[in-house]
Design a protein around this nucleic acid. Sequence first.
DNA 1: TTGTAAGCGTTATCAA
DNA 2: TTGATAACGCTTACAA
Lengths: 344, 344
Amino acid sequence: LPNQKRATIRDVAAEAGVSKSLVSLVFSKADGVSDDKRIRVMDAAKKLGFTPNVWARSLATGAGNFVGILVVDLHNPLFTEIADLTRRALLERGQNSFMAAAIISERNGKKTLEPSTVNGLLDLRPQGILVVGSLPSVSALKSVPDSVPIVFATSVVPDLSNAITVRSDEAEGMRLIVKHLTSLGHKRIAYLGPNDDAISKARLAAFKVAMKTAGVDKLMLVHECERTEAGGHNGTKLLMVGDQQPTAIVAFNDMVAIGAQEALDQFVDAGGKKIALTGYDNTYIAALSKISLTSIEQEKGAIATQAAELLTNRDLSGKSRGKEFLLLPRLVIRQSTAGVVARD
Amino acid sequence: LPNQKRATIRDVAAEAGVSKSLVSLVFSKADGVSDDKRIRVMDAAKKLGFTPNVWARSLATGAGNFVGILVVDLHNPLFTEIADLTRRALLERGQNSFMAAAIISERNGKKTLEPSTVNGLLDLRPQGILVVGSLPSVSALKSVPDSVPIVFATSVVPDLSNAITVRSDEAEGMRLIVKHLTSLGHKRIAYLGPNDDAISKARLAAFKVAMKTAGVDKLMLVHECERTEAGGHNGTKLLMVGDQQPTAIVAFNDMVAIGAQEALDQFVDAGGKKIALTGYDNTYIAALSKISLTSIEQEKGAIATQAAELLTNRDLSGKSRGKEFLLLPRLVIRQSTAGVVARD
DNA sequence: TTGTAAGCGTTATCAA
DNA sequence: TTGATAACGCTTACAA
């Protein structure tokens, strides 16, 4: 079979001997077409291998029958897992989705999102939008019609009239971590992570509150770093050469934590004492027995379900705009803290 | 600012007091428009925040000015890294790209690709297509016009007239692994991985040839499993209860290997002897010092560059159709083999 | 150099 | 129940 161009509604109409509007009716509306014609159209469609061009449909109707998913960073398993889970949840509800990955480029030293991806996704006219991860800027989403809900997973709700947030309760997550560490006897606890966007600021703030509540905030250390393995690695090295060495490190997320873990291994190899370490997100990497990282489970499944619900239920999304859905996180204790003895 | 719908070419034309074709000309062709009008159009566009709808353009011209990227599985870091690297390489060449992730669902126990994603990507009319990972079936790509090159990264070239493959030389990769293991004294070597698609069949076949060449094929074990951590974990447990225990396990890829590593840890904890283990793909997980997995680097950067070259250079892609570009892989030795003593 | 009109693949309105 | 016709946002002969 030679490659032949995709059949259109016109080809099907000609083959079936009907008008193209009738073909359209068969493929969009359930009823209003006689059985006779319906069968002829379906036969012709099957013969020609016709499937409707969904984007031409979006163009004609002004709104496609799908949810657009924008994944900010493919490198972090948290995001790809949530995106995957949400797609499945949407599929169960009979809702199609189309997922586009953002490309982050460095323009004169500053990280920015290539606007082409987000514009491209918007031009497809999704019925709803899911943003997984933190966006450097939401200005590109300003042009989204007010009627289209934008759900932000794992991110703080931005200043956008149609935005809804689904995330774990950072305050509770950090409280669980700090309580766990202090109950093990740790007092000199360091925080390692970025402080550049809403979610990282929220997490750091939550850490500070938790430390204060636990009464150990006088011994608190904070070191800023990038949200990558490299950031965690370098940050940890810097933390461990200071005169105020922590006995435990709280990393912004699992990616930072695995970088920190590498640096701590080197520190121990060089004769240093073992340092407790926690991550955040409970990715599959944290669960590997060799890594065994104490971490916070954000309940990805619940986030996905909630996001899917918001994106398919117009009533719910209508009354939820501007709101934040906070899910209760859960501490998963592993060797990175349980196997470490606290010292003064 | 209230959310307002995206400005169209018509709005700009009205604002600038020209016809919409002229606006189109300004945004597509470089010359043929007077400076006077060009400036007025650009001013109007800026004022209204207009950017062309690229998909409407695709529809009108029959071919969009972008490369469509289809990522088969977001869970495997190899694929997301190659996709990311290729996008960057394309961007450097001034070529836009749009990336969509496939959704794999289980229909009556069998893994299939939801056709909506690949159809959706094709309906966008990309200039070229990059498929990262192995597709269960390429039938959906049959409708791609013959003039549009389809580059398969990390997969064997399928029966498609416009397909081109870029992948590492499996034969050489397996040769490197088996040579490394036999040089350490291993003779009873097991292979653990799937055997269901072209790439997994190729890798297993390459393993068998390498074992024969090394003269140890009489002691060869092969155990089939899924291409996941769970697959590697379960497969390893089954391998280690047999009466013919291997002293080394060659896993299909890093994901299978980290699953195997978990199972081997438990085996050692239960009093078993240490078993050597290799992965394939040299993902960042293999490089983590706690995991430290000997693996094969497929030269992701070179794959990305080659793919980008093929997707932007029409002459090259024209004369390359049906060909396979085999890149020389590289063995990265780490603790999973170097730290293990071979036994009989 | 600029505008008019037809067309890309679809749906929506309105007659027939 | 069906079929013309206009429209979605854009490009592209062709005409002016």
